[in-house]
């Protein structure tokens, strides 16, 4: 019987620990599918974060290093400078990337480090149990902002794609989501584009995935995806924020 659908070989058989309705599983799969389709899983090295994706190295069936909290872009820089012909990918959450690791991501982008960052933005600290993240929306409840984030008290969220797109170093920046089947397809295209640009050595590439955290949002998986569509995406608009390949084509 012909196989028409199967798990990518770039994922291991280790059982995922993610909660039902979490987007990490979808994004892991997209990255694995793209690497496999490019025949580059054998050339890939992932720098994985501290946060819910800390065990991504066990799920990815390619080389990986567990990084210190927020430092994946620096660690990936070290790897890429040693192996400029390998595909180096950081996979980071919002606390990791936009809070404790802000300096590392901004400067990796500014240097035009030839790596790809996949940024999972679900607006909450997942692994530690629902504390306020740098991307928690105003009014959104967290265990450290129990009445909801009040910008006057808790400060304002950070829109990372917009911020990084002001720099000259990045070659490609796109914000996607995986809250509808069409968005999943677009997210896969974006990851592929980023990795291809890395392969061509054109610069830093960054894909933000607006994601869900049903457990810490206190929503069912279905309601969580609705929240992504109705609340998260209006604050974090999807689209391409920078594309030097398009600029070159003008």
């Amino acid at each position: 019987m012909a196989v028409i659908f199967q798990k990518p070989k770039a994922l291991t058989d280790v059982k995922l620990h993610y909660c039902p309705g979490c987007a990490h599983g979808i994004v892991h799969r997209l990255l694995a599918e793209v690497l496999e389709e490019m025949n580059d899983d054998k050339n890939a090295i992932a720098a994985v974060p501290v946060g819910c994706a800390v065990f991504a190295n066990k799920y990815f069936n390619f080389d990986a290093i567990q990084c210190a909290h927020g430092r994946a872009p620096a660690t990936a820089t070290g790897i890429k400078r040693v192996h400029p012909n390998k595909l180096v990918v950081t996979y980071q959450g919002d606390g990791d990337l936009a809070s404790i690791g802000t300096a590392e991501i901004v400067h990796a982008a500014a240097r035009g480090e030839k790596i790809t960052t996949i940024f999972i933005n679900n607006g909450i600290y997942g692994m530690t149990g629902g504390q306020m993240a740098p991307t928690t929306l105003p009014g959104m409840k967290a265990t450290t902002a129990k009445s909801g984030r009040d910008p006057k008290i808790n400060g304002n969220p950070i829109r990372v794609c917009e911020m990084l797109s002001t720099l000259d170093g990045p070659a490609y920046i796109e914000r996607v989501s995986v809250a509808t089947p069409a968005q999943v397809t677009q997210a896969k295209k974006a990851i592929r584009k980023a990795l291809e640009i890395q392969k061509q050595g054109l610069g830093f590439t960054f894909i933000e995935v607006v994601s869900s955290c049903p457990t810490n949002w206190g929503l069912t998986p279905v309601k969580a995806m609705e929240f992504v569509r109705e609340k998260m995406i209006p604050y974090y608009p999807l689209g391409v924020y920078k594309d030097i390949t398009a600029e070159e084509g003008k």
């Binding site: 090295i45 720098a47 620096a74 660690t75 070290g78 400078r81 040693v82 590392e104 400067h107």
Partner: peptide, 25 residues
């Protein structure tokens, strides 16, 4: 390769990556 890092913290984490990649760093 010489990289002037954005911080001491970043520098040592770059060392971590390069060491993991098998280099003398």
């Amino acid at each position: 390769v010489f990289v002037q890092a954005e911080s001491e913290v970043a520098a040592i984490n770059m060392v971590y990556g390069a060491a993991g990649a098998g280099a003398r760093v």
